[in-house]
């Protein structure tokens, strides 16, 4: 089943499949590697390392109506943001989204990956079905979110159907611009991020282990529980990191499918920035970042991800 390898060409999410060759190959390259890697290093220095460091610095700045960045060292921004009840509620809400979206994408991703890896038997079909799952990833997320509106709206297709068959008398109001629609949007957009790493872990499982389990009398369910699931742990961890970090920081999905009624941490940062309140937004962003890092560390504890890279 190594045959499934060529998929990785289209599948960089499968970070566990790759490892910097440098770690494996001891060879001096002189000056050449430094020159070759310089553009990459420069881009990430200027547009990633310095900016993220600056967010930390700015979170201690002061601000005024016409001067949004006044160098200072004050904890006022943190006090301002976290002195409000609404901030805590927003974090709680975001955690709830993380949990429910994680649970749903995990069940979906695992089941779909299991089907692809163990039930689809020819490589051509595997690639075809895998591509069918992947293609939406290369299209516009905003449009994919907007696409739910004519389905879920007050006069949308779902309500028309439910009323048509007499299941409900009045249109359901909670379908759109609600926690439900936001969760649905997340699942729609990000199940792939769970599916790909788990699938990648599954195709690497030695098939004789599965056969041995069957020969020893394990039911299919027992095989999944005691053989396949443990061996998929690294893929599950990587998928979970993707899904949790995306949901934790999201503001676009919440904006489009929450329609102003649903809050999230990312959205409140975005709103603060909309009012040009950089320092409080930065303070909020630092706490968000700390939580994301803690999540990754916790998941890293579950499996040694670096060993899998």
């Amino acid at each position: 089943m190594r045959a499934a390898r060529p998929l990785t060409l289209a599948d960089p999410l499968a970070a566990e499949a790759v490892r910097p060759a440098a770690l494996a190959r001891p060879s001096g390259g002189g000056l050449a590697p430094y020159l070759l890697v310089a553009p990459l290093a420069l881009v990430f220095l200027v547009f990633f390392v310095v900016p993220v460091g600056l967010v930390l610095v700015v979170s201690f700045f002061e601000y005024e109506a016409y001067d949004m960045l006044i160098p200072a060292f004050t904890l006022e921004n943190y006090r301002e943001v976290f002195g409000q009840r609404v901030t805590w509620d927003t974090y709680l809400k975001t955690f709830q989204f993380c949990l429910s979206v994680w649970a749903i994408t995990f069940v979906l991703g695992f089941t779909l990956a299991y089907f692809l890896a163990f039930y689809v038997r020819t490589l051509t079909w595997q690639i075809t079905l895998f591509l069918i799952c992947t293609i939406p990833f290369w299209t516009s997320n905003v449009i994919r979110m907007i696409s739910w509106i004519p389905l879920l709206g007050r006069n949308g297709l779902v309500n028309q159907f439910l009323q048509g068959v007499g299941l409900v008398d009045a249109p359901l109001e909670w379908l759109l611009y609600s926690d439900f629609s936001v969760t649905l949007g997340f699942v729609h957009l990000y199940t792939l991020f769970m599916l790909v790493p788990i699938f990648n872990a599954m195709v690497r499982i030695d098939r004789s282990l599965v056969e041995a389990a069957a020969d020893a009398g394990a039911s299919e369910w027992q095989t999944i529980r005691h053989v396949i699931l443990p061996l998929c742990k690294p893929g599950i961890a990587i998928g979970s990191i993707f899904v949790l970090t995306i949901v934790m920081g999201d503001f676009v999905t919440v904006n489009v499918l929450g329609g102003g009624k649903v809050a999230s941490v990312g959205k409140s940062i975005n709103t603060e920035l909309g009012y040009l309140q950089f320092p409080p937004a930065a303070a909020n962003a630092m706490v968000l970042l700390a939580i994301v890092v803690l999540m990754i560390v916790a998941l890293g504890r579950l499996v040694d991800i670096r060993k899998e890279l």
Binding site: A15, P20, A21, A22, L23, R25, P26, S27, G28, G29, A32, P33, Y34, L35, L36, V37, L40, A41, F44, F47, F48, V49, V50, P51, V52, G53, L54, V55, I241, F242, T245, M248, G249, F251, G266, I269, N270, L273, F278, A281, A282, A285, L288, L289, V292, I296
Partner: peptide, 30 residues
């Protein structure tokens, strides 16, 4: 470049991966 050994390779690799999972709003703000 990453096929041969150079100083900072591991650090740079981890920075690049960190960028992948960093909340985008934080990068944009920075």
């Amino acid at each position: 470049a990453f096929r041969s050994r150079f100083r900072g390779a591991s650090l740079l690799f981890h920075i690049v991966v960190a960028s992948l999972i960093m909340p985008s709003i934080v990068v944009s703000l920075g």
